[in-house]
């Protein structure tokens, strides 16, 4: 079973001891806490969103932690994988690709390699993108495709 690295976002009641109860549940499930971001400036209706980056030994441990946290009355409002994968895309279009590159960055994707050619009427670029694992990454890729098509590019993605 591979280790699982995730960012859990919990909605904590703004009361002393709530964060400790949450962290205890993560520890009980075998999670190793990497970092905690406590956004006190984002208090909404008495709740403080807290993002906790954790490495779990496997997916079952993550599930146990999630249930444990909710059992002590703390809602888990987000679970995003911290693993990244590399995807190759090819973009065909006219222009400098500046608009597209800005769109990539705005979607939480990162270009780690690029190769550009322009022997035909349109320019062609091959990009290697770092994409978050999981649903978030898939959503970002789907949005990237929409944006690229909207800007008049032809985007080729991996099957």
């Amino acid at each position: 079973m591979p280790a699982v690295r995730v960012r859990l976002t919990c909605a904590l009641v703004d009361r002393p001891g709530t964060l400790l109860k949450t962290l205890e549940q993560i520890a009980l499930a075998g999670g190793n806490i990497i970092s905690i971001v406590h956004s006190r400036e984002n208090i909404t209706s008495g709740y403080v969103p807290v993002s906790i980056n954790v490495e779990f030994p496997d997916a079952q441990s993550l599930e146990r932690a999630r249930k444990g946290i909710e059992s002590v009355g703390v809602p888990v409002i987000g679970s995003e994988s911290l693993e990244k994968s590399l995807r190759t895309v090819i973009v065909i279009g006219r222009g400098e690709f500046g608009d597209l590159i800005r769109a990539v960055e705005g979607l939480g994707l990162r270009i780690v390699d690029a190769s550009v050619r322009g022997s035909g009427p349109e320019t062609t670029a091959r990009l290697t993108l770092e994409v978050p694992e999981g649903e978030g990454g898939e959503r970002a890729m789907a949005r990237f495709e929409e944006v690229a098509t909207g800007l008049g590019y032809l985007l080729l993605t991996e099957v």
Partner: peptide, 8 residues
């Protein structure tokens, strides 16, 4: 484009 096929 031929470029796209070559880059792939």
């Amino acid at each position: 484009s031929a470029d796209a096929v070559a880059l792939a």
